[in-house]
Computed example of a mutant assay.
Amino acid sequence: MSALVPLTGEPLALDLVNTRPANGDLLATPGDLCAWWALQAGRLPDAAPEQVTAADLAAVQAVREHTARALARARRGEQPAAADLAGINQAQSAAPAISELAWDGSAVTATRRRDGSPGRRLAAWLAEDAAGLLADPAVTKIRECEAHDCVLLFLPAHPRRRWCSAARCGNRVRVARHYQRHRAG
């Protein structure tokens, strides 16, 4: 994975889109995907496998591209392209979710799971999260980081939030402003 560590903690679909910072692709290889998956481990039903295939990576990258384009339009209140919505729907149907029933000794339990290769399952979980975010009225509140060299998206918990990360972009902008003030004086 790139030296740039991916941001995590936004809705999963935004974390996925944010793997495309201005300076590269954080999901360029199957190994990158495994590392990102491990970072998201607590948020996904499947544990990150040790290896994924190039086809698995392509499935996740396709969901990322469809999600990025659909979010770009939906956050402005515009209709996403039908092809992007269809791509997200197709990714979900490539590894359909079922509620698998089992007896645990005292009650029936239901566990949501998906069939298919690890990457197809991941792509389906991510597409499901993207579908939920796109259908949420909060989609119009998604913002792009205000740092001039950053393209990352975030869903602000506070209306005054301006940067994807206070520690990453916020500090950099504040330091640059401080330097400009003292240099001018």
Rank of each mutant, 00 (worst) to 15 (best):
Pro118Lys: 02
Glu100His: 10
Pro137Thr: 03
Arg75Asn: 14
Leu101Asp: 15
Gly119Met: 03
Ala97Gln: 10
Arg121Cys: 06
Asp104Pro: 13
Ala102Thr: 15
Ala62Pro: 03
Arg76His: 13
Val63Asn: 01
Arg73Asn: 13
Arg121Ser: 01
Leu101Tyr: 12
Gln90Asp: 14
Arg75Lys: 09
Ala123Cys: 06
Asp56Gly: 06
Asp84Asn: 07
Pro80Cys: 03
Val108Lys: 06
Val108Cys: 09
Trp125Ala: 04
Ala97Phe: 13
Asn89Asp: 12
Ser93Tyr: 15
Asp136Tyr: 02
Gly87Lys: 08
Val108Ile: 11
Ser117Thr: 08
Ile98Arg: 06
Ala83Thr: 14
Val63Gln: 01
Ala83Ser: 15
Glu65Trp: 13
Trp125Gln: 03
Ala82Cys: 08
Arg69Phe: 11
Ala74Trp: 07
Arg121Asp: 08
Ser93Val: 13
Arg76Phe: 06
Ala110Arg: 12
Pro80Met: 00
Ala91Ile: 13
Arg75Tyr: 12
Ile98Asp: 15
Leu134Val: 03
Asn89Ala: 08
Leu133Ala: 01
Asn89Phe: 08
Ala97Trp: 09
Ala124Cys: 04
Gln61Val: 05
Ala97Ser: 12
Ala123Gln: 08
Pro137Gln: 04
Ser117Val: 06
Gly87Met: 08
Ser117Asn: 07
Gly87Asp: 14
Gly105Ile: 07
Gly116Gln: 00
Ala107Met: 13
Ala83Val: 13
Ala62Thr: 00
Arg69Gly: 10
Val108Met: 14
Ala123Lys: 05
Leu133Gly: 04
Trp125Tyr: 09
Ile98Lys: 07
Ala131Gly: 05
Ala59Glu: 04
Asp129Gly: 00
Ala135Gln: 04
Ala81Pro: 13
Ala95Ser: 15
Leu71Phe: 07
Leu101Lys: 11
Ala82Glu: 14
Leu134Thr: 02
Arg114Gln: 11
Ala91Tyr: 14
Gln61Asn: 09
Glu100Trp: 13
Asp56Gln: 05
Asp129Cys: 01
Gly132Pro: 05
Ala102Trp: 15
Ser99Gln: 11
Trp125Gly: 07
Gly132Lys: 04
Ser106Phe: 13
Thr67Trp: 05
Ala102His: 15
Ala62Leu: 02
Val63Cys: 03
Ala59Phe: 05
Gly116Glu: 03
Leu122Gly: 01
Trp103Ser: 09
Gly132Arg: 02
Gly87Val: 08
Ala58Ile: 11
Val63Ile: 05
Pro80Leu: 00
Ile88Leu: 00
Leu122Pro: 00
Glu78Ser: 08
Asp56Phe: 14
Leu85Met: 07
Pro137Glu: 04
Glu65Arg: 05
Arg112Cys: 10
Leu122Ala: 02
Leu71Asn: 10
